[in-house]
Every structure is written in C-alpha cells, then in structure tokens.
Design a protein around this nucleic acid. Structure first.
Lengths: 263, 263
DNA sequence: CGACTAGTTGAGGCCAGTCAATGTTGGTGG
DNA sequence: CCACCAACATTGACTGGCCTCAACTAGTCG
C-alpha cells in the first residue's frame, strides 16, 4: 500500500450560523485535547456544516457534541443498539453492514470523512445496521433529539435534516439500480467512478486513491464474490483502463470506464 | 383473473388530532362529490394517520389536501417533475420506476392503499422517479411545505415525518440485501411473503391475493427477467407451495416459503 | 519460522439470461 | 357472433456470466 498525493482542491464556501460546541469523549486521547467550536475543525468545510448548517439568522441553542476516536475494526454501533445520535466522520472511514435473520450479510454503505453515519437508527430508536471502522477514525456525535429540537425552531435546519434523509434514500436507490440491472464489470466501474467523485469533492486526487476495503468487502457492497472483483480488476488493468497494485488504484481512462455503463 | 375474498380483519386504533381538510381535484368525477375531513375517509385507518398523525394536544392548522383520481397507466409524476406534495393512496396501487441516463430502468417500489408516495422528491425539489398507476387509483395530496410548517410546531408530527423517511430507507436497504445476496427463488419468496404481510396489515386475506404487476414488472422489481419469474412461479406451483392462475396467487405453504430463505 | 490474512488465477459447474415458439386472455371492430 | 390483434404468459433449448472450489503467492505478525 503506497501513500497517494492528496491535496485539497477547492474548499467550499459555507457560513454556518448554528454554533456547535465540541466536548471530548472521556477516552479521547488527542495530544492537544482542545475543546472548541465545530467551526474550528479542519474537516468543517466538508462536514456537518455542508449538510446540516442553518442559514437563518435566528439565534439557536448550541448543539453539544462529543468527539470519539475509534480504531480500525471497532464498531461505532451494532444492530440493535439504542439510537441517540448521528455521527460525523472527522477523519477515517467506515462501512455499514446489514444482517438478516438468516445470517445473510451485506455492506450497504461506505462512508468517508465528512459523511454522516447513523441514519439507520432514525425512526426506530435502535440501529438496524452495524457501523464498522475501516481504519482508525474520529467522529463527532450529534445528539439527534437535540437536533430535532433545534430543527423545530429553524426552517433551514429542518429542511437540511430532510435533505440528509432524502439523500440517503437516493443513494440507496442508485445502489438498487446497480444491483438489479448491471453486470459485474459495470458495477465495479460505477464503484470506482463514485469513489473518484467523492475524493474529488473532498479535495483529493480523483484519479489516484487507496481503497479502504478488501476485495471481499467490495464484493459484498456490489453483490459480487471476491474472486469476481479480483478478476475484473485484473481485466481492467489488462485493458489499460486502470492501474491497480493491491489497494492503490489509479484511473487511467475515465472515459472508457464510463463507456462500460452504456451497454 | 378471479375475484378474491378480502375482508377487513383488524382495524387499527388511532386517534389523530391533526385535522386534514380534503378538497377535490377539478377533474375529480366522484358521483358523491363529498367534501370533508380526512378522518371520514374509508382508508383512514391504514393511511396517513397511521404514519403522519400527530398525538400532541396542541392546536395545529388544517392541512388542506386535494384528491385526485388517476387511471391505470397514468403517471402521478415523472422524473424531473417539480416536487410539491406527498401523495397518500386512498385506493389502488402504483409502482415507482427509476431510470438512469443510459436507459437502464428498474422498479424500486410497489405501493398500495395507505402507502405514501412521492418521497423521492424531498430534498431536491424535483422527483427522481416516475410513479405509474397499476390500476385506477385515488390519491390525496399532502403539500409538503405545509407539512414542514406544521411539523415545526408539533414534535410528534415532526418525528412521524422522520419516521416516514426512515422507513423508506429501511425498505430500500432490505431490497438491497435481496438484490445483493439472494438467489432468484428466494427473491420471489420474499416478494410473495412481503405482499402477503402487506395485505394482512390492510385487513385483507394474507394467503390469497391478485398480483397487480406483470411478470416483467415483478422481474424488474426483483432484478430478474420475466421468463425467470414465470418459471419460478411454475416451480413453486409444482412443489405445492403456492397456487397460481395468471395473476391470482394463493399461498399454500407459507412455512416452506420461509424455509427457502434459510439456505 | 509458522500461522494467518489478502489477493490472484485456473477449472468446472450451475443459475439465470437469451432467443424462440406457442398458448392464453382481453379488447376491438367487422 | 367471430376474427383478429396485442399484451401477457409459459415452456424449451441453449449460452454465458458469475460462483464454487482449489492451488498458489505475497505480506504481516507473533
């Protein structure tokens, strides 16, 4: 696994009015141990504020969040856990896994810095998925009840909560289309192009990145077996569309990848 | 296609406090042409009130809805249409279809009386799916902006809106698991059992019902081809698990259907 | 070093797709 | 009434894409 060049490209311009106070988890071992506002967070631009910030000028109560640090392999929450908060990924990444009663298991989401995780707990008071860290990760929690309370006083925040949920629905639907209609090669192409876009949106290189998932996890996400994923990656390399050495991927011919989706 | 016995079984006990006034569409051709409250609607118990009703005692403004009647094959809305309202199905059923830019098309939802349709428009101001009637259908519209306004004054209504969206996410995720991990026979079994449960919840026979979708539509919903659906239905008949004559289905051995999911 | 995990590649099999013929049903018009 | 047609459904023969099983390599960790 090699390091990959990742320079921020275009920081977004966002002016949040919702003040968020960050408290740290008891187990938080940050050397600096800084308390402070969310707006001082380095991930701020591509985080919470982009999705949930309020633009209304009305004074809103502070939303107190707790920062947590998790290790690779840790579960942020498991299926059945009580739902109380959404989590914003400050740095790192995780997968969300859905299990059914017969032991069937599928990865239904891959989440990276700035993404909001835990939506599967809304409406039922308990989580339906398990969120498992793919690397060491820092998250900030957003107590959902408090968020609901704030949203009642703030139309824009309310709409942003709705947008957050709606986006999750749209994402799920796209994945349904992928699983229901696409061939294996197309699924993988969509996966790579999607990753590429998401890195771009976060200011990183869109053509060169390191996968955080194993072949098996990618397969689970795409409804394929790990051998199929491996074979297809090799094929894309042979055809000159990508370079792949272990988990580091370079997209060489994005146009050709897109053309795979047309057939 | 034969008529099938459908007696209400257990009406739900719900006491809505949110008053909803129903206006009728200009094109509405109901012989009776009754104006009135939503609570007088025959579908009331298994409709809106079960999902969106408010239990808080605080006085809330009336939500004015328009009733529309649609014919089989009509589109309630198309992809790209401006989103302004959710729709409650009073009677009838529809499918929601997602299309991608390459002409790939998949049915992502099947909705029957009492279901709320149009959620795909939330957050983006335009619909991402097309909703097409599977039979002559009556719907009531719920202007979403007004619903948002009411939800800001009513904690329970707010939570119910969240629950509505969350349920849609959960539904999508279950379908992802189905499409990603199950074999064709299992998918069909899940489909039949799910239909069965939904009819039961609406007070109809849970073991005998009439499909509203063609084999092709079922296939699109389950990520299969129509021939596969047809073959599998025949197989289930041969094995004595169901009876199927055209679109009328009778579940003969529900236990065996469930066992199919275990392997 | 051995044990383990992750990944690659090959051989073979099966499930579901494809293509095609035929049957069934419902609607329309002569 | 029947002839005709279109849409829907069934069934068979064949194909192929993906899965399964298996062998092997490379890297990591105790």
């Amino acid at each position: 696994m090699r390091a990959v060049a990742m320079q921020p490209v275009q920081p977004m311009q966002i002016k949040p009015r919702l003040t968020i106070v960050v408290r740290e988890d008891a187990a938080f071992e940050d050397a600096t141990r800084k308390h402070g506002l969310c707006s001082t967070c380095q991930s701020h631009d591509r985080c919470l504020s982009a999705t949930l910030h309020s633009t209304s000028g009305s004074p809103v109560d502070d939303l107190v969040t707790v920062r947590r640090r998790l290790r690779k392999g840790d579960a942020m929450y498991r299926a059945g856990d009580r739902f109380s908060a959404l989590y914003v990924i400050r740095s790192g990444s995780c997968k969300t896994v859905l299990l059914d009663e017969h032991g069937q298991e599928q990865i239904v989401g891959y989440h990276m810095a700035g993404d909001i995780v835990g939506i599967d707990g809304i409406g039922t008071d308990h989580h339906e998925c398990e969120a498992k860290m793919l690397e060491d990760t820092e998250v900030c929690s957003l107590p959902f009840e408090e968020l609901e309370r704030l949203a009642r006083d703030d139309e824009v925040l309310q709409q942003n909560v709705h947008r957050l949920l709606a986006r999750e629905i749209a994402r799920a639907r796209r994945l349904m289309l992928l699983l229901g209609t696409m061939r294996a090669e197309q699924r993988l192409a969509v996966f790579l192009l999607d990753l590429s876009e998401r890195y771009l949106a976060r200011g990183y290189s869109s053509c060169e990145f390191v996968l955080r998932m194993t072949r098996e996890e990618i397969g689970s996400y795409l409804g394929l077996k790990l051998e199929t994923v491996s074979r297809l990656l090799s094929r894309l390399v042979d055809e000159g569309l990508i370079r792949a050495e272990g988990r580091s991927i370079k997209l060489l011919d994005r146009m050709a990848l897109r053309r795979l989706l047309e057939k």
